[in-house]
Amino acid sequence: MKGQEWYQATEVAEEYDEKRFSRGGRLIDRREKEAVLDAVGPVEDQRVLEIACGTGRFTVMLAERGADITGLDISGPMLQEGREKAQRAGVEDTIEFMRGDAGRLPFPDDHFDTVFAMRFFHLADTPTKFLTEMARVSKDTVFFDTFNRFSTRSLYNWLLPMGSRLYGDSEVRRLVDEAGLDLVNDEHDFLVPYGFYRKVPDWIAGPVRSVDTALGATPAGKPLSSVSYWQTTV
């Protein structure tokens, strides 16, 4: 797993949200949360599992909407940040944070209504194993995102200390088939890679995002998009 030691560092966990989702990064946070909510639908009284929950951005959001949610991550410091976030939001009683391996989920088959993972598959050395496990423990929806090979992300990837696994459209569709899942919907976004938005202030990020979104709606949008969201069912 790429970056396993890096993500488990306490200083990384403490600074994670601030470095990625402040300034122009707020636009990324907003879009990712929108994508999750669109995919999972109403979650009140639903049993949900988040893989690689990190600092609990989505875990807490869904708990606030009534989900009975479990957040699993390999990083103890990230989970601690999530617990503190849940306490501040007053939803700590409806979230279970667990440290564990996404390749060997400690749950029976069909245990959750929905299973999802964000910011995870770009780190996966063996994506088929992880997606198959997600499908095994879900009885309905499996949702995840990927970074795309034929996009501006491929250029930005050279600057990253540990790189990312990038996916082509056909590769993801094959993974979905191999996991026994049916693809319901796929969306593609962010012609400008995440790294740009995180480095610029709001007054620059906003207009760039407007242009990015407009270009993304054209026929060139899908092949050039750096991020894809995949909604599937078991």
Rank of each mutant, 00 (worst) to 15 (best):
M1P: 00
K2E: 12
G3L: 11
G3W: 10
Q4I: 13
E11M: 06
V12I: 12
V12Q: 02
A13Y: 06
A13S: 03
E14Y: 00
E15M: 02
I28C: 11
E32T: 10
K33D: 07
L37Q: 12
L37K: 09
G41E: 04
V43N: 04
V43I: 05
V48N: 11
R57H: 07
R57P: 00
T59S: 12
E64R: 14
S75H: 11
G76I: 13
M78F: 04
Q80P: 01
G82M: 06
R83E: 15
E84V: 05
K85C: 00
A86I: 07
A89M: 07
A89G: 01
G90L: 08
G90V: 10
V91K: 01
D93A: 15
M98W: 09
R99E: 15
R99L: 14
D101V: 03
R104A: 10
P106L: 10
F107Y: 13
T114R: 09
A117V: 11
A124W: 06
T126N: 13
P127I: 13
T128L: 13
T146D: 05
R153K: 14
R153P: 00
R153Q: 15
S154I: 07
L155H: 04
N157H: 05
L160H: 11
R165P: 00
G168R: 10
D169L: 12
D169S: 09
S170T: 13
E171I: 03
E171Q: 10
V172L: 10
R173L: 07
V176Q: 05
E178L: 13
A179S: 09
E187W: 05
E187H: 04
H188R: 11
D189G: 04
D189L: 12
F196I: 15
Y197D: 11
W203R: 06
I204K: 03
A205W: 01
A205M: 03
V208A: 05
V208G: 02
G216I: 12
P219V: 13
P223Q: 06
S225Q: 10
S225W: 10
S226A: 14
V234L: 02
